[in-house]
Nucleic acid binder design. Sequence first.
DNA 1: CGTTTAATTGAAAGCAGTCAAACTATGTGG
DNA 2: CCACATAGTTTGACTGCTTTCAATTAAACG
Lengths: 247, 247
Amino acid sequence: MNPFDLLIRRFCTQVSLDAAARQAIRDLPHTVRVFEPGAYLLREGEPPVFTGIMISGFAYRHKLTVEGARQIVSLHIGGDPIDLQSLFLDVADHNIQTLTRAEIALVPRERMQELVATNVAVSRAVIANVLVDASIFREWIVNVGRRDATARIAHLLCELAVRLTAVGLAEGYAFELPMTQEQIGDAVGLTPVHVNRTLKMLAASGLISRNRRFVSPNDWSALRDAAGFNTRYLHEPEPELAPTQFG
Amino acid sequence: MNPFDLLIRRFCTQVSLDAAARQAIRDLPHTVRVFEPGAYLLREGEPPVFTGIMISGFAYRHKLTVEGARQIVSLHIGGDPIDLQSLFLDVADHNIQTLTRAEIALVPRERMQELVATNVAVSRAVIANVLVDASIFREWIVNVGRRDATARIAHLLCELAVRLTAVGLAEGYAFELPMTQEQIGDAVGLTPVHVNRTLKMLAASGLISRNRRFVSPNDWSALRDAAGFNTRYLHEPEPELAPTQFG
DNA sequence: CGTTTAATTGAAAGCAGTCAAACTATGTGG
DNA sequence: CCACATAGTTTGACTGCTTTCAATTAAACG
């Protein structure tokens, strides 16, 4: 699929885009590149050059404390725009790295800025997308600030299950989680040892099944309850209102 | 000061606004209202009706977990736009409450949406502002996820000191922090008891002085080091580049 | 097959939480 | 102006969730 159709589909979950806006997006110049796992897409302190669209693979944003501890602040999957977060900021405040091999469509930042400046519908879509990202950041603050280890990890799993399902990358909320337990810990503010114990406990209590990095909820509503998970913060469209036509 | 001049000043820390854009902002319809401490400006689950500009006072955004624990996800001070975060989202994913008595200029959401749709410079300013908010959310994830109690609280104090100083509400990084220790705990993911102990420890170690809710750093660079605080995430303009003319 | 990376497990230590009570402002009504 | 009520701060003792340290097992890799 054309990377911009992925982006258009994403935008259409929040706003409607007329034909002109869609065409303007498709006309953006871009290069599709494949990045190996661990590749940096953005480094803190450096000026952002590209805006990207994840075609496939996983990526994560993270920051390091002065003591060297890492905190992952978000995860990105196929269809996610990358680095709209830096579109109008001149120095990156965080790093973005691929988690897996990933195909990413790179668009020069200035060209995206120009499009946002000239097309109202696109501008609105970009703002809405950025606002949803911000909502997810807020929920992550709650997750690391006020949930215990079990709920934190369950919440992360729920979020990924729902987001992956929304873009057709998970079946029945089951999915491959391409993260080491250390990376999971960095995402939820725990140590890898405790992530291991908590994951085993989630499996032992029957909430999930694990097979290597493949995770599947045995009882979705029980997992959701354990996580205190509510999809509201993802601002997904109501199923019945979901756009079926987007191109 | 006219509330919109506050907003224009804020926007001009990130982008430049031409005379037309400034006038368009000043032409926004608005009502100035005074809210008592604890008043709700927005409730999770409800549709946002207004966008606001804090003229004076403090406010905070927060979310509740299903267990009833509260997590404050951001603090707002004079000059901050409120609820640009919900400008294009139809259901609030969090609550906003005043911390103190606060004067707020309310602008109907649709009028702000219209302005963003018709004025490119304003649109860019709104996006930049929202992106800075998001950057602060990211840093808060790091704060609660990867710092110990001392660093967390020191970091909160540093952030407020810098932000209040930037808008002329603090002298020498000293300021009145109008929060109970329970609210501070809700902002950094700690219990009020531990906040109390940590605050006393910060004072005992000479990093800060406290007098009721008035906090002043005795040694700014030592406090900054204890917090692992770096202003980059606030995306403030370089002092020498700071706009001196903005209206 | 060795080598490296990741997952697992056990034991001990520690930071922060919980529970409970005392203290201190601040405010109210008589 | 004082007794009383309320909200917030402070302190102590104890508990416990997570971390730390260390070692073992399992999987991935060339």
